[in-house]
Amino acid sequence: MILNYLTQEFEQEVKSTRNLLQAVPEKDLGYKPSEISWTMGELAQHIATIYYWYVGTLTQDVYDIAADELKRGDTNDIKATLELFESNVEKARAALKTLTEEKLKADWTMKVGERVVLGPLPRGIVARSFLFNHIYHHRGEMIVYLRATGNKVPGMYGPTYEDGKEN
């Protein structure tokens, strides 16, 4: 039952993430709100990359992120980031299909080399926090970046502020 809900949420939110990434203009990929912030291009690529992490999270009991290689491309090429996103979404869908309710209860750990950085925690908890909520967090950041650069924010949960201003 929970797995069915996660899968439905995944599909719904993929559409919202796609709309948001499609709203990122090439001209603003170098924008960053502060010295310690990512550029808009780096943030967009990070959002696309999180979908790749579904594979290691959902199919491995111990995921060593340092041993996992993903070719990401240029952060100054939004088309490349959108291609990365679409490719990673397909991989995430395939990983979701391998899940069972029992696997959601199983402990999962993330390592960077020999160092444990997350877990052990039940995989279902990790899916919600490290995957789903992590994407939502960074999408919120992207909305701030878009507004700060004068760009339109797409509606993800209904009309946006900008939609209301057009009426």
Rank of each mutant, 00 (worst) to 15 (best):
L70I: 14
E101Q: 07
E86H: 12
Y54M: 00
N88W: 10
Y54K: 00
R115F: 12
R93A: 01
P122S: 13
E69Q: 13
G113F: 10
V112R: 11
R123C: 08
L99M: 02
I78Q: 14
L104I: 07
T100R: 02
R123E: 03
M110A: 12
P120L: 14
T59G: 02
N88S: 10
K79P: 12
K97V: 07
Q60S: 05
S87Y: 15
Y54E: 02
N88E: 05
M110I: 11
M110H: 10
A106C: 13
T109R: 05
E86L: 12
T81M: 11
K97A: 05
D74E: 13
V116I: 10
R72N: 15
M110W: 12
K97S: 04
T100N: 03
V89A: 00
L104A: 06
D64A: 07
L58G: 00
E83T: 09
E114P: 08
I125F: 15
D68S: 13
D77N: 15
A66F: 08
T109C: 03
A66C: 07
E90W: 05
K79C: 14
E83S: 12
L58D: 01
Y63V: 02
P122F: 10
D64V: 03
I78Y: 13
T98N: 01
Q60C: 03
D107C: 15
D64L: 07
E101F: 06
L104Y: 09
D64I: 04
D64H: 03
W108K: 04
G113A: 14
T75F: 13
W108C: 07
L84K: 06
D64G: 06
D64W: 06
K79A: 11
E90D: 05
T59H: 03
K105T: 11
L121E: 14
Q60T: 02
V117D: 09
I65G: 04
E102C: 10
T109W: 05
L82H: 07
G119D: 11
K103W: 07
G113W: 06
L82W: 11
D74S: 12
W108I: 06
A92V: 00
L70Q: 08
P120G: 10
T109A: 04
A94V: 02
A94S: 04
R72T: 15
